[in-house]
């Protein structure tokens, strides 16, 4: 067990080092001065330039540069934003919770919808229910998330005017930014109209969350279905059935507990896809998260921010994968014999 964890952590360190190397190579390849791309300081004065050179050891070999690049980033120095000179790291810390909030809610909905539907599909294998659910999930999976978002805005926002279409909260509610999670921040704040603020925040959440949830939900349905099918064909299930247990009991007491872990581990593999959709969703619904910020940075050709975004998003994916991997191994001993886990 500990041996496995040590090996996994070791692999993690290497993977992150490679990620840093990739981003470092990107920074060299991107248009513009390397010093500017690394530090975010645009048109530096001579003194500033010298400081950057010594900070990132730009006068030394590329290997030194690479090492000091890693050092700066690990110490939380991601440079400053071109446009307003604020530290990029602070900005990311402010925006990341909004993205995570959106992803968590969407993932929750995807699981709440996808798991039961996946089980139903597996139980009705090759029957109408299975066909219908599988077809629906294939269709859902094929809808481009930006089209879905735009249509949702068109219908629920503009036509019916049920739901707000952009932003996190009506800006008149002056909610202090503490955790970055709107609902928690409202709870922590001391505004007068708390109840209304909750309602407003939830109304703002519904459309982006559902739009983002569609694709993961379809993925969950299919993964659950496949895993459940495997489990349902296993001998212990047949044994349980032979013992005359109630079919529901067979599913919920035997098949599901065994199926759920592979499902969860498969889903973590989708994290990077989820982040991609989240970025697009944020742009459509003007959600003030890291994705919208990165796309804006692209329009402004702000390479310091883009590279920081790549580093943080990919780092986030790697960390979550490793953690879920270790958790999985800790709870399922039989997986330890697997070759090795990977991202």
């Amino acid at each position: 067990m500990w041996f496995y964890i040590a090996r996994r952590v070791n692999l993690f360190v290497f993977t992150v080092a490679v990620l840093f190397l990739l981003v470092f190579v990107m920074l060299n390849a991107l248009p513009g001065e390397l010093a500017t791309n690394l530090s975010g300081v645009q048109n530096p004065t001579i003194a500033q330039y010298d400081a950057i050179v010594s900070q990132y050891q730009l006068d030394k070999s590329w290997f030194n540069q690479y090492i000091s690049f890693i050092k700066q980033r690990i110490h939380g120095d991601f440079g400053v934003s071109f446009s307003d000179g604020k530290p990029i790291f602070d900005e990311m810390l402010r925006l990341l919770p909004a993205t995570i909030e959106l992803c968590i809610y969407a993932m929750t909905i995807a699981l709440l919808l996808g798991l039961p539907l996946g089980i139903i599909a597996a139980v009705y294998y090759k029957k109408f229910g299975d066909f219908f659910l599988l077809g629906t999930s294939l269709i859902g999976y094929s809808i481009p998330v930006f089209w879905l978002g735009v249509i949702a805005i068109m219908y629920f926002g503009l036509d019916l005017q049920w739901l707000p279409v952009a932003g996190q909260l009506n800006l008149l509610y002056q909610v202090e930014h503490v955790t970055g999670f709107t609902l928690i921040d409202i709870y922590l704040s001391d505004i007068v109209y708390k109840q209304l603020a909750y309602q407003d925040a939830i109304a703002h959440l519904i459309m982006p969350t559902l739009t983002l949830a569609v694709i993961p939900a379809t993925v969950v349905i299919r993964i659950t279905r496949t895993t459940m099918l495997e489990e349902l064909n296993a001998n212990y299930i047949k044994a349980a059935q032979a013992r005359g247990q109630h079919p529901l009991s067979v599913i919920f007491h035997h098949a599901l507990p065994n199926a759920i872990q592979p499902v969860l581990s498969q889903i973590t593999l989708q994290l990077s896809t989820l982040l991609t959709s989240a970025m697009v969703t944020e742009v459509i619904f003007s959600w003030p998260g890291i994705g919208q910020w990165l796309i804006q940075a692209t329009y402004q050709q702000n390479y310091a921010i883009i590279s920081a975004g790549v580093l943080v998003c990919a780092g986030f994916v790697i960390v979550v994968t490793v953690i879920s991997d270790i958790l999985l191994i800790a709870t399922t001993p039989r997986r330890r014999s697997a070759e090795y886990g990977s991202v």
Binding site: L11, T15, L19, L22, V280, V310, A314, I318, T321, V343
Partner: peptide, 17 residues
């Protein structure tokens, strides 16, 4: 490891860069 690192980068971000 190179693969793990590249796969962890959301494909859209990679394409943007």
């Amino acid at each position: 490891h190179i693969l793990d690192a590249t796969l962890a980068i959301p494909s859209l971000l990679l394409a943007i860069v």
